[in-house]
Amino acid sequence: MTSSDLQDGNASAVLRFFGRLANRVHAQDASAGALPTLYAAVPPRVGRSARAGDPVAAAHLWTGSEELTGVVFPERLGEVVDQG
């Protein structure tokens, strides 16, 4: 369980209370909570394919992700994108 504000959106005061209590007692911080996903995506003992380091493929994946989610980040692949 990762500590977040997701429990605060619950309409029930009792569920909000127990959600906050669980965050304090049991939950991990955000960086520790992200580790299982990262390990699932790239297990530490597994090598990367040549394509995994391909900057053109990375740019294509990044752009596609932005288009599909509607979220655009100002920095892409270490370069500042002109906002103007």
Rank of each mutant, 00 (worst) to 15 (best):
F73T: 11
G70F: 00
E67W: 02
E66G: 03
G64A: 07
G70H: 02
G64S: 07
V56S: 02
H60V: 05
V71K: 04
A50W: 09
A58L: 14
E75I: 09
R51L: 14
G84Q: 08
R76A: 10
L68S: 06
D82Q: 06
G53P: 05
V71M: 01
G78W: 08
S65T: 08
S65A: 11
E67V: 12
G64Y: 08
A59W: 00
R76V: 09
H60C: 03
D82P: 01
F73S: 09
R51M: 11
V71A: 04
E75N: 10
V80N: 03
P55Y: 14
S65N: 09
A57P: 02
R51S: 12
A57V: 15
G84H: 08
S49E: 15
V72C: 06
L68W: 01
E79C: 10
L77D: 01
Q83C: 00
G64V: 06
R48D: 13
V80S: 03
T69R: 06
E79V: 13
V71C: 04
P55T: 13
V71F: 07
Q83F: 02
T69C: 11
G47N: 10
P74Y: 00
E67P: 10
V72Q: 10
L68E: 03
S65G: 06
R76Q: 07
S65E: 06
L61E: 13
E67Y: 01
A50E: 15
V46F: 09
E67L: 11
G47E: 10
V46H: 13
L61W: 13
V81Q: 05
G70V: 00
V81M: 01
A50V: 14
D54H: 11
E66M: 03
R76Y: 04
G47V: 14
P55L: 15
T63I: 08
V46M: 13
T69A: 11
R76N: 04
V72F: 07
S49A: 15
A50T: 12
W62L: 15
R51P: 04
E67I: 10
T69E: 09
E66R: 01
F73A: 11
G70L: 04
L61P: 04
S65Y: 05
P74I: 01
G84E: 08
A50Q: 12
E75L: 06
A52E: 10
V81Y: 00
A52L: 12
G84A: 07
S65D: 05
S49P: 05
V56E: 02
G78Y: 06
